[in-house]
Design a protein around this nucleic acid. Structure first.
Lengths: 199, 199, 199, 199
DNA sequence: TATGAATGAGGCTTCATTCAT
DNA sequence: TATGAATGAAGCCTCATTCAT
């Protein structure tokens, strides 16, 4: 019964992602989400407070999973280099495999409406913390010189984000993942990562 | 007469920037722009095709000026290092001095609606070309090793963009310009800029 | 089994009275009645045809009891004076002791919707007949001069009704029953009731 | 220009009265009022805050006029008898000539919703004050014995109100004005009005 | 060229009612 | 008989745009 409820919740979420990605949040009608999810319009309001709430939850649920995934992978990395690779690789791979999520994330969520912004920001913060954590770890272990953590995070996240937007906009016909290595090289140069001389 | 027309055009543009920055594009009513500009609602439609057109023109006009400015400054730079500094400095300085423009740029313009996207993209492309030009120049002059120009541009623009968003969101209470030097250092590391051994 | 059914019927009725009194018929949701009655939404439809039907039955049941009570009391009165006193006293006392019923009666039942009006009117008519009967009895016994029965009834019922509305609206902080004697005096004056010269 | 605005305001008001009287407030759609008034749906919202606001203003405007009229007439009356006659006569005459207003007044305005109730009550209070004023004047001039003013007002207003409701409900096929004299006789009896022995 | 009153299409949301369990 | 999740029709209101002046 509760599994059924969870199933319908996920179905609406998936439908919303498709719908938002296709039409954009503002142009997408609730009734389209309902149709895609195979439920009645009113049913959506049994699971979500409002259309805006659907948008927020889409982000929280999907990015929450993504961030948890990155976090899990990171915990198994030994070096800063490996950690950076994990971040770039997971970011690009996830977005490439979830194009609609990427579209919603890169475009629809940049809402200045505070009702949308606030809940989203708090989720994004988790990702920021993850990235900043990697940098700090690098500094502490001596792999990375003492640099401004925030600025470094802005560079890393901004670069990943922009590459994703580029790809979403289909400006570049390339795959997103083909950018992993070149991007990584830039990051390593920027952070002056001392490659594990461990031996 | 034409100067008068131009004046009113600019007044509407400025009003729109304030209005969009304050309420967000979708929540801002045309009537608010008109009030701020000191004209009647209908007058706006003598200068712009639609509300969306106002948004597009805001970007084209203001970013057009900005890009022209950057371009002008760049032409006087001798080294890649100087060119990167020019880009970062001009970007941050401009945004800091035009907070409303920054808000509109960072948030409101991320519209998935193709009618808005397309004209915006073509303006942004000019900026991208500028940045990529700097990188290519660096490669040709040997100041920068042979790297993927697009990825490098994604990193540079993405970083500047994210830092600006961060500042707009007031996540960081710092000034935007205080990030110039640290960001520049990252870029130089990333691009492995050979500092002008020119003597 | 039938007693159980009756019990649940009454519980829904009581819940409806509270709910209607609190939120008003149109703003009160069926689901609120259900919650107050401790049953599921759907259960209400096993006992009532529709939400409107609940309103109608509330009136019929509660006012039916009330009218039966007045009628019973009246049958034991010997004089017109006593009968008028019974009506005023019972009316005010009942309403004062059943504030929620009073609220529903005075406000929520004034529906112009014919589906609600008609069944309610037929119940109210019973009360009107009771009052008109008292007047006619008075005329026949010579206690009251020959007057227009309908108009007299309008005055009596209208006065009681308005006093009750006044009290419900909390316009007057007084108790409702404190108006019994003054109101009675007015009625006796209006009907020129010859006080029982019976000895 | 302002006369034009006033004209449209009145046209919407009149349309609303017809519409509310015909369908009832809750069942009447805004679009019906618009059609009857010969304006677009949206135009109504240039003159009124909401559908509820239309209802409130209907009452305030029409009853305001009515009360002003009664007040004017009363000021020319010399005796309590004449004043009571003025009240009864004006009340019944007005309602009979404005059946739709009467329907709205008697049925649709009995809303328990406080947003509607409050503004209405304050208008009704003016009428109450008028009636109570007449009674007090009567007491002071010695035409009426010392009685409870509030209760007397409840009787007078309640009776008029109930007679009007009766007529609106078409329970009585008679005209409303035919009730003037009998009702007046009741009031004079109730208040024990000493007929002007003035000569 | 400028106005701003008027337009009217369009959409989110509510909630009485149903029905599979 | 009882449940309560699901339904989906229906309506108030907003606001970009027009057009008579």
């Amino acid at each position: 019964m509760d599994a059924q409820r969870e199933g319908k919740f996920q179905r609406i979420l998936d439908a919303a992602i498709e719908a938002f990605a296709e039409s954009g949040f503002h142009h997408c009608q609730v009734n389209k989400i309902a149709r895609l999810a195979g439920v009645a319009d009113g049913t959506i309001y049994l699971y979500f407070k409002s259309k805006e709430d659907v948008l927020i939850r889409v982000f929280q649920e999907r990015m929450g999973d993504f961030i948890a995934g990155v976090s899990r992978e990171l915990s198994q990395c030994k070096t800063t280099e490996a950690r950076l690779r994990t971040i770039v690789k997971t970011h690009f791979t996830y977005m490439e495999q979830n194009r609609s999520v990427a579209i919603v994330t890169q475009l629809e969520l940049r809402q200045s409406d505070p009702r949308v912004r606030l809940p989203i920001n708090s989720t994004v913060s988790d990702y920021f913390n993850l990235i900043e954590g990697v940098i700090q770890q690098g500094i502490q272990s001596g792999e990375v010189p003492k640099i401004d953590t925030r600025v470094a995070r802005q560079m890393i996240f901004g670069s990943l984000d922009e590459a994703t937007t580029d790809w979403v906009m289909a400006r570049s016909p390339r795959t997103l993942t083909s950018g992993i290595e070149p991007m990584l090289a830039l990051f390593e140069g920027a952070l002056q990562v001392r490659k594990s001389e461990t031996k």
